[in-house]
Design a binder for these strands. Structure first.
Lengths: 197, 197
DNA sequence: TCCATAAGTAAGTGTTTGCTTGCAAATATA
DNA sequence: TATATTTGCAAGCAAACACTTACTTATGGA
């Protein structure tokens, strides 16, 4: 059989997991199915990961490296806060649409396994998102653009609801979901909260 | 052994499921564990429900009867829309806090099993909530109290994000979560979107 | 009092699960 | 070329799972 180095196989395995979820649902993520999807024997999967849990943890690391780091870049830019907030939201929405099912995988596995390592990684992802969004709002307030009486904490909570609702809507009616201009529409709504009256 | 009629046992079983989730996590909901929690043999569980799936479906029915019907009542009241929206939000928040883990159970099971019956019930729950919130907003606009240029659809999406975020926060840091005045604070924020400028 | 029915149990069933073992062969390094 | 390491596979492991079976016993209406 064809042989490939571990780092390549690891990516193939993680990608297989996401394909299976999207096509067949969460229940079908078994080491047998993953092996078949990659085109390896089941035993080989355990050459490249110590456990099934490690595969999920590694997928979480991908989310951190891809999504969170992009959001961090946007949040720390010099551009006007309104532009940043808009980009931030659109980046999140795009990522979720392009990686359908990834957050439900993360939340389901974490709450299913009740595993501290998973919960901790999820915590990092969630609270990074919150904190980075909060920074943009703080900047806007500091610049005198936005209403200084708004609680940054509370706004961030509300803001975080947008991607999570998007996720749920995608689970419930994948096909019907109308994401045209979704981020722009949501952005216009939340801007009303921030603007000085 | 003590014998009880099916309808009593069914409630005991459903209640046991929720206790197990809260105490031990989703993975521990096995028919063995449920039986032990109720104090029955595993076989007896199947006297009262045809399958494990039916237990979850029945819990979903409880959510529909308890939460959704309360929300419907609030939504259809005659009181001022702002009062109704506030009550609506607080009712949801209270329910989620008192029934910790119930929504993650529903979403996880539905997306894990990928079962049409479960997805359909979840759809009903989610879209009822959306629609009932939307009605309050429509009423407010019709009465000339709120900004008529706001999209009721988009507002409802944003509004639905509040309970879902609450859920996630509760999974991630159950103990630390500060829910004092949570609903009031969120209500004040979203009111800024609705008010005429 | 009789007896159908409902509610209980112990001891299984087959299947699926994540993972291991023992060994072969490809690849990299000396 | 010699050898150590890595990658692969087939077969199989124990444990866990939802659920069934065969049988017993309590309950309640005729």
């Amino acid at each position: 059989m064809e042989r490939k180095p571990t780092d390549i196989r690891q990516e193939e395995i993680k990608s297989a997991v996401l394909s299976i979820i999207f096509r067949d649902g969460l229940k079908k993520i078994t080491t047998r199915n993953i092996a078949r999807e990659v085109g390896l024997s089941e035993g080989s999967i355990f050459r490249h990961f110590n456990s099934k849990k490690d595969i999920i943890l590694s997928i979480m690391d991908n989310v951190i490296n891809d999504l969170i780091e992009s959001l961090r870049e946007i949040s720390l830019k010099d551009s006007p806060p309104a532009d940043r907030l808009h980009d931030y939201l659109c980046k999140t929405v795009t990522y979720l649409i392009e990686n359908k099912g990834i957050t439900i995988l993360l939340f389901s596995e974490a709450s299913y396994e009740n595993d501290p390592e998973m919960i901790s990684k999820l915590n990092y992802i969630f609270h990074s998102q919150r904190q980075l969004a909060g920074k943009i709002v703080s900047d806007g307030i500091a610049l005198g653009i936005w209403n200084e009486s708004i609680s940054v904490e509370d706004f961030s909570t509300l803001f975080m609801g947008i991607p999570t609702t998007l996720n749920i809507e995608m689970i419930l009616n994948l096909d019907k979901f109308e994401h045209l201009n979704f981020c722009k529409r949501m952005f216009d709504l939340v801007l009303k909260i921030l603007e000085k009256q």
